[in-house]
Each structure stands twice: as structure tokens, then as C-alpha cells.
Amino acid sequence: MIELEGLTKRYGDKLAVDHLTFQVRPGMITGFLGPNGAGKSTTMRMMLDLDNPTAGSVRIDGKHYRDLQEPLKYIGALLDAKNMHGGRSAYHNLLCLAQSNRIPASRVAEVLDTVGLTAVAKKKSKGFSLGMGQRLGIAYALLGDPEILMFDEPVNGLDPEGIHWIRNLMKSLAAQGRTVFVSSHLMSEMALTADHLIVIGQGKLLADTSMAGFIRENSRSYVRVRTPQPEQFKDAASAAGLSVSLREDGSFEIEGADMAEPVGELAAQHRVTLHQLSPQQASLEEAFMQMTAQAVEYHAHNLNDPGAAAAAAQADPPLAQNAPPAPGQQGQGPQWGKGD
């Protein structure tokens, strides 16, 4: 269990982390979601007592981090794959860290095996690819067999097989009753792994909810209609008591998941020609972008207006010529790059 209370970090006159209060509970994966510069990495560094908070506190099982005896046995963290000495072998990088917490050397070989780096254990870590570095960082996190694990953007730099592996690893760690806290800037990634979701933007807490609850509240279903006879269609729909909204591009939206059938029948009755009748579902990525639109710090150059960005994201991808790249599975708009 990790408890944050009023955690605040100020750099000059800029609040990087703004009174964050939340808990990370055991036995599940808690996703820590936010756009670039939202303060995710800063928060995680403060949780490990690397950065000093301006105000507030972090408790790990009720204790301050620096009061932990041999902390690697309580909490293991992957912050950045590059946080190792490149001139040292993978084995020796882990060995010196293990020794400081009186973890036996045999455990070093064990975790190297777990992450699949046994073959390169004696190689200097500066020659490692980003994916291998990420695996070395995960090996470090697992070193003390801790009850709490923290991963900052763990899928970064991993190939699809590696991404699959880390997802399963996190799930199995949570299934063993451990606390897993993982940050990401990709909603799609979180939707696949997290049980609980903490969303921040510009250092502020935006949501602290179960993943299921977030999906329920934020995945909007509707039917899109295009017609050359908008007036007739609108009148007919209003007469039938449907709530219809006209969009800027001239199409209509009718709320509800299974509205395609009744709308089609209604159009037939009134002899209205339809050019499009399609059920739509707003993705979680869109919901996340809407939620953080006001809080996104680094907008792409042509998207100064957060409202416009959100509206563009709402439009159908094929029609949204001026919209940012579709916020689909792995697709990333320019403002969703790595690193805080």
C-alpha cells in the first residue's frame, strides 16, 4: 500500500505536482495515466525519496521511504532503463545493488533469468538496446522480491513480444497479491492492463477510479447518420422523440448503442435517403484526451485551442482531415511522446 497525501512539487513558480492525494492498493494493477509533463515521473521520484516534495508526504506501508530497512525488499522500481552504469556488466550492475540490501548473489542470476538477459549478463550494459535496458531495469525492480512494484513507462522501447511479456508479468505480480503501480501516457495500454486508474494532468488529480467504472462512464455509444435530406430527417426524428444532434460537418448523432435499427426503419417510413448509418463508439483514448485536454501542457503547434483538439478527436477518423493522428491503438499524436 502506498499513500500519497497532498504531495506537491514546485519548480520556481511552476507547480509540477499539485496536492496529489491517492492510494495505491495491493493485489491489483494501478495505472498512472497522464500526458507529457503531467508530473508522473516527478511523482514517482518523490515516492522513492529521490526528489524532495515541496509539501505533502508519501507513506509506504505506513513508513517514509528513507526509514525503510533495505528498501529493495519492500519496493522495486523501474524509473528509466538508462539508470545503470554503462561501463559495468548487467550482472555487476545488479550485484552491487543487491549487496547494498543484503540480497544474495544467487538472486541476481535468478532475476536475470526471469527477464531473459542471462546470455548477456557479462556484457557491458551500455551496449544494450532500449528494450534490453528496460528488461535490466525490471530485473532490478524484482531483485528484492518486493511486495510493491513501480514501473515508469515500462513498455517503452519494447517490441510487441516484450510488451506482451511485461503485461503478463505485471498481471502475475498483481495476482500474487502485490501492489503494482505503472505509469503510461497511453490509455490503450492501460485499458489492457490496469484494474484501477489514476489520471493526472498538470500535476492535478483528474480521476481516481476503477478501470471498469472509467469505461462505463466514458465510452459513449451513438449512431451516425448522413443524409441529403437533413430537414426531413430531423423532423421525423424529433416527431419520433429521438434526441438528435447536428454536427458541424452536417452529419447527425443519435445517442445509444443499438439505435441503428430504429433509425433505419424511421428513415424508411419517412422515405428519407440515408448515405450513412453507422454505430459508433468513442474510444477510451478520446475520453482520456477530453479529460486532459485542458491540462495538456505541450500542445502540438497547430492545436492551440484545447476545445478544437477535443472536437477534432471526436470526429470520425477518415473525415477528420485536420485532426491529429487518430488516437487509436498505438497511434500517438505529436503531444503524446515519451517522457515528462
Partner: peptide
């Protein structure tokens, strides 16, 4: 190298 973060997390 950034090792300082790893080191201090191990020995706060």
C-alpha cells in the same frame, strides 16, 4: 549514467 537514482533508491 543516471545510476544515482538506482543507487539512492537502494540506499536512501
Amino acid at each position: 549514467s543516471g545510476m544515482i537514482r538506482t543507487s539512492l533508491a537502494a540506499v536512501p
